[in-house]
Amino acid sequence: MADEEKLPPGWEKRMSRSSGRVYYFNHITNASQWERPSGN
């Protein structure tokens, strides 16, 4: 997916099972956040 290609290394887009909202998860640091991480 083009959107995921633009995410910084380690980040992936996921869907919250409880709320149905999109969030972002970093599998390197195990961090998660609602806001899209910047690629800069």
Rank of each mutant, 00 (worst) to 15 (best):
P37K: 00
G20D: 07
Q33E: 03
N40K: 15
Y24T: 00
K13G: 03
R14A: 03
E12A: 08
S32E: 10
E5P: 10
R17V: 11
K6D: 08
M15C: 11
M15I: 14
I28N: 06
K13A: 10
Y23H: 02
R14W: 00
S19K: 09
L7M: 07
A2T: 14
S18C: 06
W11S: 01
A2D: 07
M15N: 08
D3M: 10
S38Q: 12
M15L: 13
G10H: 12
N40S: 13
R14D: 03
M15G: 04
P9H: 11
W11L: 02
G39F: 03
K6N: 06
S32M: 13
P37F: 00
M1R: 07
P8D: 02
S18E: 14
E12C: 07
I28V: 15
M1T: 12
Y24C: 01
G10S: 07
P8S: 02
S16T: 14
W11A: 01
R14K: 10
W34R: 11
R36H: 12
R21L: 09
N40E: 15
N40R: 08
A2G: 11
N30E: 15
P37R: 00
M15P: 02
S16K: 06
S38G: 13
S16D: 14
N30K: 15
E5S: 13
T29P: 01
A31R: 11
R36P: 13
I28D: 09
S32P: 03
E35N: 06
A2C: 11
N40D: 14
F25R: 06
T29R: 05
K6I: 10
S16C: 12
M1D: 04
K6Q: 09
S19A: 11
R36Q: 09
Y24L: 00
M15A: 08
F25T: 04
I28W: 07
K6G: 09
S18H: 04
T29C: 05
R14F: 03
M15R: 11
N26W: 00
L7W: 00
P9Y: 04
N40P: 10
D3H: 11
G39R: 09
G20Y: 03
K13H: 08
E5G: 09
D3C: 01
K6T: 12
R21E: 07
M15W: 12
Q33W: 01
P8H: 01
N30V: 01
S16R: 03
M15Y: 14
G39M: 14
W11E: 03
L7S: 01
G39S: 12
F25P: 02
N26A: 00
I28T: 13
W11H: 01
Y24S: 02
D3A: 13
E5M: 09
E5L: 09
H27W: 05
M15E: 14
N30A: 07
R14I: 01
S32Y: 03
E35M: 07
A2N: 14
E12L: 06
W11R: 00
Q33S: 12
E35R: 05
M1N: 12
K6Y: 08
G39D: 12
K13C: 06
R17C: 11
H27I: 11
K13P: 05
M15S: 06
R21C: 12
N30T: 04
R36S: 11
G10A: 06
Q33N: 02
P8K: 03
E4S: 08
V22G: 07
G39K: 05
S19M: 09
E4C: 15
P37G: 01
W11I: 00
A2W: 06
E4L: 09
Y24G: 01
Q33M: 06
N40L: 13
P37S: 00
D3R: 10
R17L: 11
R14L: 04
S18D: 15
S16L: 07
T29M: 03
L7V: 03
M1A: 12
L7C: 02
N30Q: 15
M1V: 08
N30S: 11
R17N: 04
S19C: 08
S19W: 05
T29A: 05
K13S: 08
P9C: 05
T29Y: 07
E12Q: 09
R36D: 06
G39A: 15
S32R: 14
F25L: 05
E4N: 07
P37H: 00
E4I: 09
E4G: 08
N30Y: 05
H27S: 12
H27D: 03
E35I: 07
R21K: 10
P8C: 02
G20S: 03
N26S: 06
N26L: 00
I28L: 12
D3Y: 08
Y24D: 15
G39V: 11
P37Q: 00
W34H: 08
K6C: 10
P9G: 08
Y23D: 05
W34E: 14
S38L: 13
F25C: 04
K13D: 02
G10K: 01
V22D: 02
E12T: 13
G20L: 03
V22H: 07
I28M: 14
A2R: 10
E35S: 13
S19D: 08
P37C: 00
S18I: 01
S18F: 07
E12N: 04
K6S: 10
G20C: 05
I28R: 13
N30H: 14
S38D: 04
E35A: 09
W11Q: 01
Y24M: 00
